[in-house]
Simulated assay, not measured.
Amino acid sequence: MTNNSAKLRVSVWRDFRPDRPLAHRGTQSEEMRLVGHDNDLQQEIMSWQVREGVFSGIEDSEIRAQLSEALTGTFSALLMPSERGVSKLEEFLRLSEKAIEDGNSLWSVSEDRAFEDEEEPYTVNTLLAFHHQLQWMLAVFGDEPGISVSIR
């Protein structure tokens, strides 16, 4: 049996720029309005469901809380896209790199049940793996205008 429950969902968004203005009505009581290039709408261009507990290998609760706040607080979907730009990944990457280098991120048994039939469970350094994925995201999307990140 495979455990399909995601621990985090990382989404990358870009400014929505329709080819022509679109008519939009939020609710039936709202008036119709035109949506064009000057609106704050974004469209999701990438989504990644993290199935491991990113901080499961961190024993120090203070470091775990600091990293968690730097991640979920900074990239909350409730913030405006301009407040959660892709460049903000650099701060989390700096903090996570320090935790990794200081030996605070340990290898732990994977929570992924895709390989249940294996004799030995495999281990993973979840923070290190997550760190590498975010580095890739920053390298790919870092220079693109109008990009934001949300983490839920």
Rank of each mutant, 00 (worst) to 15 (best):
A6I: 00
R17E: 09
R25W: 06
R64A: 10
L78S: 14
N3F: 06
V86N: 07
S61P: 09
T126V: 02
S61Q: 13
R9M: 09
I147K: 07
R9T: 15
F55Y: 10
D15F: 05
E97S: 12
A6S: 13
P18A: 03
L34V: 05
H132M: 08
G36S: 14
R33E: 03
D143T: 03
K7T: 06
I100Q: 04
E30F: 08
D19E: 13
R51C: 06
F141P: 07
V12D: 05
Q66C: 13
M137K: 05
L138H: 11
E69Y: 07
R64N: 05
E30Y: 10
M1H: 09
W13H: 14
L67M: 08
I45M: 02
A70T: 13
P121K: 01
M46R: 14
L89G: 02
S56A: 04
D15M: 05
W48Y: 03
E59Q: 11
E111D: 13
L71W: 12
H24C: 05
L71Q: 10
S108Y: 10
R25F: 12
T74I: 07
D60W: 00
Q66D: 15
E30H: 02
G36H: 04
I45T: 10
E97T: 02
M1F: 00
I63M: 09
S96I: 00
S5L: 15
N4V: 08
V50P: 05
V50W: 15
S110K: 13
E119W: 01
Q133V: 14
M32Q: 13
T2Y: 11
E52K: 10
L128A: 15
H132A: 11
V140N: 05
F130A: 03
F92D: 01
V35Y: 04
A65R: 15
L127H: 09
W13I: 07
V124C: 08
E119D: 10
D38S: 13
I147L: 02
P121V: 00
A129S: 12
N39K: 14
A139E: 09
V50Y: 12
Y122W: 14
R152H: 04
H37R: 13
D15R: 15
A65D: 12
G57C: 02
I151Y: 11
P121C: 04
T126W: 14
I151C: 09
E120Y: 01
E69G: 03
D40R: 14
G142I: 02
L138I: 07
F115K: 09
L41I: 11
K98I: 03
L34F: 06
D40H: 15
E101R: 13
G26R: 13
D112R: 11
F141Y: 09
W13T: 12
R64V: 07
D19F: 12
R94Y: 00
V86E: 01
A65Q: 12
